[in-house]
Design a protein around this nucleic acid. Structure first.
Length: 587
RNA sequence: GCGCGGUUAGCUCAGCUGGAUAGAGCGCUGGCCUCCGGAGCCAGAGGUCACAGGUUCGAAUCCUGUACCGCGCACCA
């Protein structure tokens, strides 16, 4: 068997940083307590391609002139085919300009690699990502959108970075709502309606229960009794529970398929119920938890961390029932025992920040001290009609997720029909699906998760600006050129960077791997989206300045530009796939 | 009251592990169609990065305080 072509396994910034390290050692700064600072891309082409700010740190540490340090490092740089120019600038910056020849070959190598030449900083490391987590017996609504697609983007990004990723859908499949449903099921169910649309009927029954329970307290008493029976293992209730869960999961899967979202496991709250009593007892025995007002709580002090507030974490109500915090602690323990993750990420809305601070602090008290817990929280998603969408307000007034997707797809379809009427009907339908769903996802993912965002139909589906259709269009244009080249028998050849627009584009392609890794490490998919947008913008400039095919373009230039265009397509395709957005080759 | 977010161009938002002159889209003004896909490109105007201090070679970014907005504060999740 032939082994796959070896990827460069390093980013440009890393290679330059290594050169600076060697030079710093040679210049006598090896003993400096200053950690080596990674080289970074310049934000101004006048300053070259990459810069190092290392000399400022050393200069400060040694109380010497940073400019002199920078000069010493530059003088000590080992000769490298990477660098065309290295110079000291300003108060002590070291600016690097890459050699065109080296950059050309680097970009060519990366474009032949499905991973764009990215290293795998996550190799041998495991991360659990907890996201989406909808509640059973309700249709997914737009309040679930952000967690679902941001979490899935993180899943993809961490996989790209080489991590072993456990994507866990912690569905809400337990608790009093099931008692309510069971009561309502017996009272008011419409079998025909259930057969036609199980979730719709379950939602109706749930709403009906809520409305009637306001006036009839006996209903709530019955619901609690049914819940208790379910928890005690009553066969009839267990069968109903299973039925409701199965119907819900089938419904969720329709949405997940549509969104291209995948999970490694789906371990809902019910999975952890058998473990809760033991955990509560254990925490009491170890004096981590105490009894307060008849309830069992984990108290916190200032030493446990900041932002924990005044209140403890409640893990058993005074009536003996466990709570979601209890389940969350059981979940932590199960994940640690099962996968030994280095990192655990929770993607939820920002209102749960304090809750997760409690969970993380309590986990440490339980002895889980070696896990890097991260709460990636997102802001509110608003819709233009003013409706505020929240996870918990999933009542009758909210918009179904599937309806949002359908609206986006039909809007996309109208545009495709208008702009690409010549394409076959079936292909137009596929394109509209990709564009519509991608537009919704990208609108969210291209913004900082922490921000509140207001959905904007026109902007998300616009061909202008930082939108999915713009990026898809850039990709489709590349594919179009590649197709046309094949028709004419033009073959891709060695990359030669002659025009500034070509060089800028090549550099942007080369930096895509860095952007993906940065997005993973910072848990911000929007950083990758930002970069992909600059790639697309660079492409448009290249497109108007540099013809690939044509009578007035010589063969070597055609071959070179064809390589570059194919590479751009590869970068856009890979990058958009990392945020779960598709890339049609025609649109 | 305690805690957590947020405040950047007319609008919508990037940028925040400190780096050089703060970016983009929309909108506005003015250009570019003998065009590999104009679903595009170029140029211009537009900013006391909420405010006040502090840290230092350097602050939108870090620290402290203030103002305003949003959210959360044990027997829901």
């Amino acid at each position: 068997m032939r082994r796959p072509r070896r990827s460069p396994m390093t980013t440009i910034a890393q290679s330059l940083t290594e050169l600076v390290r060697v030079a710093a050692d040679a210049a006598g700064y090896a003993d400096s307590p200053v950690p080596l600072e990674p080289c970074v891309a310049t934000n101004n082409p006048d300053h070259g391609d990459y810069q190092s700010n290392y000399a400022f740190r050393v200069g400060k540490s040694l109380r010497t002139n940073p400019r002199a340090v920078a000069q010493a490092v530059v003088d000590a740089l080992p000769s490298s085919e990477m660098i065309a120019k290295a110079e000291v600038a300003g108060p002590g910056f070291i600016n690097f300009t890459l050699s065109d020849a080296w950059l050309s070959s680097d970009v060519q190598r990366r474009c032949r690699d499905a991973r764009l030449g990215a290293p795998s900083p996550g190799a041998g490391r495991t991360v659990v990502i907890d996201f989406s987590s909808p509640n059973i017996a309700k249709r997914m609504h737009v309040g679930h959108l952000r967690s679902t697609i941001i979490g899935d983007a993180l899943r993809r990004l961490y996989s790209f970075a080489g991590w072993n990723v456990i994507a866990d859908n912690h569905v809400g499949d337990w608790g009093t709502p099931f008692g309510m449903l069971i009561v309502a099921w017996h009272e008011w169910r419409d079998d025909a309606a259930y057969d036609a649309d199980a979730i719709a009927e379950l939602q109706r029954l749930y709403q009906l229960f809520r409305e009637n329970a306001k006036a009839d307290e006996a209903l709530m008493v019955r619901a609690r009794a049914e819940t208790a029976k379910l928890q005690a293992g009553d066969e009839e209730n267990a069968a109903l529970w299973t039925q409701f869960v199965m119907a819900s999961m089938a419904e969720f899967d329709l949405v997940y398929d549509r969104l291209g979202v995948e999970f490694t496991v789906t371990l809902g709250e019910s999975f952890y119920q058998p473990k809760l009593a033991q955990i509560i007892q254990d925490l009491l025995d170890r004096k981590i938890a105490i009894i307060n007002y008849g309830a069992v709580v984990v108290p916190f002090t200032a030493e446990d961390g900041k932002g924990l507030g005044k209140n403890p974490l409640l893990i058993r109500k005074s009536d003996g029932a466990a709570l979601y915090g209890t389940t969350d602690l059981a979940t932590v323990l199960h994940r640690v025992e099962t996968w030994s993750p280095e990192r655990v990420i929770y993607e939820t809305d920002n209102r749960q920040q304090q809750h997760f601070k409690h969970i993380f602090a309590a986990s440490k008290k339980m002895g889980v001290t070696h896990v890097d817990f991260r709460h990636v929280f997102h802001g509110i998603l608003r819709f233009p009609d003013g409706a505020v969408v929240s996870t918990r307000a999933g009542g009758s007034g909210t918009t179904n997720l599937i309806d949002v997707l359908n609206t986006a797809v039909s809007r996309a379809r109208a545009v495709v029909d208008e702009k690409s009427a010549s394409l076959p009907e079936a292909e137009r339908a596929v394109i509209a699906e990709t564009v519509g769903v991608g537009a919704v996802k990208y609108f969210d993912l291209s913004q900082n998760p922490a921000s509140d965002i207001t959905f904007d139909w026109d902007r998300s589906l616009s061909m202008e600006g930082n939108s999915a259709p713009y990026l898809m269009y850039a990709h489709a244009r590349c594919c179009s050129i590649v197709r046309r080249a094949a028709e004419r028998g033009v073959v891709a050849g060695d990359l030669r960077l002659l025009e500034p627009a070509e060089r800028n584009l090549a550099l942007a392609v080369a930096r895509t791997a860095d952007a993906a890794l940065l997005a993973a490490e910072t848990n911000r998919p929007n950083l990758l989206c930002d970069h992909l947008y600059t790639v697309a913008q660079s492409l448009s400039r290249f497109y108007v300045n540099c013809r690939v095919l044509g009578d007035d373009v010589d063969d070597a230039t055609s071959a070179s530009r064809l390589t570059l265009v194919a590479g751009v397509a590869q970068a856009l395709r890979t990058g958009l796939d990392l945020v779960g957005v598709g890339t049609p080759s025609r649109m």
